[in-house]
Nucleic acid binder design. Structure first.
Lengths: 145, 145
DNA sequence: CCAATAAAAGACATTCTTATCCTTTATTTG
DNA sequence: CAAATAAAGGATAAGAATGTCTTTTATTGG
């Protein structure tokens, strides 16, 4: 509900890449998509966006693939979301008004603002690394079987 | 971010209709759309859905239009959202997994579940009437000028 | 250098959302 | 009843999101 397909696949791919980035290993797009059950070519495009935004690293050629540096592992989830959804997403009016502020609020403004703060806090308060660790431990999953 | 255009227009239209439903007056689609700055034909379709779901009332013909009964004014916002977005929207996994539960959670499951509860509480805790009252008082607005 | 490999990039197809237009049906008023 | 009115309904169009396929570019290992 919160995320587009682009964002869902992107987050899942990033978590999987992170889970494989322990000692500098790289992971190919095919392996990623098998492990997160996502369409391969579409996900490849999404990873292009993430690498352009320096949230994921990649290397072409033999033994190439995607990986994440220590610094990239520390990125909070919100960085991925902003790169993939655009940041306007987290700032607009809940009812779609062009102008909606504390001074001239829509009828949902205050309650919506509270929710949005919750969301931003959640996205800011969790790192890729944390999510990948639960995946490595086996306490969480990224696909349905 | 939370709502589709369909939902945004639907909610705004419902609030406007509610604000005009004091003593049984009806409001035409043209007037509604002028006051909420929404596309007329598209909004008309949305209102068809809402009337089918008995969330708004309508009457054809001369002096007809849309209105809401006392009971309809008491509907919480979540009824509109479920009618317009479908209720699956408020139940699925944040990362799009088909299966994601307490037993087999995705890496975002717990934090996402908390947010979703917040959202459901917000949508359940506010009625159309409450929103329309703030509009009538002039403390909130539904359009940008 | 050459062959193999894997990501990047571009073109295109499909589906869903958003939006418009036109016709039909129901209702009211004179 | 007739004319006017307004919502309901159907057909269609434009745009965005999602998804696929093919070619190009960069890199590595032999």
């Amino acid at each position: 509900m919160l995320f587009s397909k682009t964002c869902e696949y992107g987050i899942r791919a990033a978590i999987y890449i992170a889970s494989q980035s322990g000692t500098g290993e790289k992971t190919g797009i095919r392996e990623i998509c098998e492990n997160i059950e996502a369409p391969q070519h579409f996900t490849a495009k999404i990873l292009q966006t993430l690498t352009k935004n320096h949230l994921v690293s990649s290397q072409k050629g033999v033994n190439g693939g995607f990986y994440m540096t220590k610094e990239q592992l520390q990125n909070p989830l919100i960085h991925l979301v902003k790169a993939l959804e655009g940041s306007g997403n987290l700032t607009g009016c809940g009812l779609g008004l062009k102008i909606c502020s504390e001074k001239e609020p829509c009828p949902l403004h205050h309650k919506y603002a509270a929710i949005r703060n919750n969301i931003i806090n959640m996205l800011t308060g969790i790192t890729i690394k944390e999510m990948s660790q639960s995946l490595k431990k086996g306490t969480t999953v990224l696909k349905s079987d």
